[in-house]
Amino acid sequence: MANGVYLGSQYAMIALGLTLIFALMNVLNFAHGQMYVIGGFVTYTFYGQWGVPFVLALFMSCITLAIVGALIERYLFAPVIKGSAREESTMLLAAGIAFLLDALILLIFGEKQRGVPKIVDGVFNWDFRLIMPYDRILICVLAILSIVAFIALMQYSKTGRALRALAQDRTAAQLMGVNVDRYSMIGFALGAMLAGLVGGLLVTITGVNLGMGGPTSIKAFMMVMIGGAGVISGAIWGGFILGFMEAFGLAYLSQYGDITYLLIFVSLMIFLAIRPQGLMGKPWG
């Protein structure tokens, strides 16, 4: 159960950024995993290499990814969306960006697995029934707090309201005076920033390496499909459902071999056959 909460909170954060970008721009951002990896490497560089306090390093990951996201939206996605009505154009662009970021990560940060010193030492052990290192508990709490802060931002701030309006009906939002170009860029930057934040948080637990981007994107897509593409609450549900399925599968099914992901994929296929729009999505998109 505890592992499910821990995995679910980090997965939900990864899925949130992806679903936000999809909701705002109808773009499947295949480079989301690479943005997560860059976030991890930035925290690694500031905290692990230069000894900057962890919170500041995390902040730098957020800022870096927000800038990267804004630039990618402004100079790559926005022109393509304006110039082409075909969805595959943005998909191809996203895939190209993923490859580009992979190459840049290799060039700048190298091929090795990287890790940082633990932010908190010690292990919580409740009579050997519940064992969890304190740093995981802290990261889990920080992830949940970040999710709450994100929801609050979307619900109660002017920017959040504009983003939600944009996600619901782009044309109507424009007619109501929302600066679509500006808020598309802000939304993309926010989505990328979330990827950077979770990358920065998780580098303290899992470390980071060049190859983590692709698998992270795939998992994020799974969560988004479970919860419903473009729906914030769906991403959170999707993240926690996948986290719990993985934790329970590994705990109770490992004796039968590595069938956890097999079952997760089969369940996902059956689920999507019954409810293709996902848990919280609408059939009309």
Partner: peptide, 18 residues
């Protein structure tokens, strides 16, 4: 000898516990 993991596993606690 039958416990395996995915290469992209981010939390090995549930994998190793059994």
């Amino acid at each position: 000898d039958n416990v395996t993991y995915q290469v992209d596993t981010t939390d090995f606690t549930p994998v190793l516990t059994p």
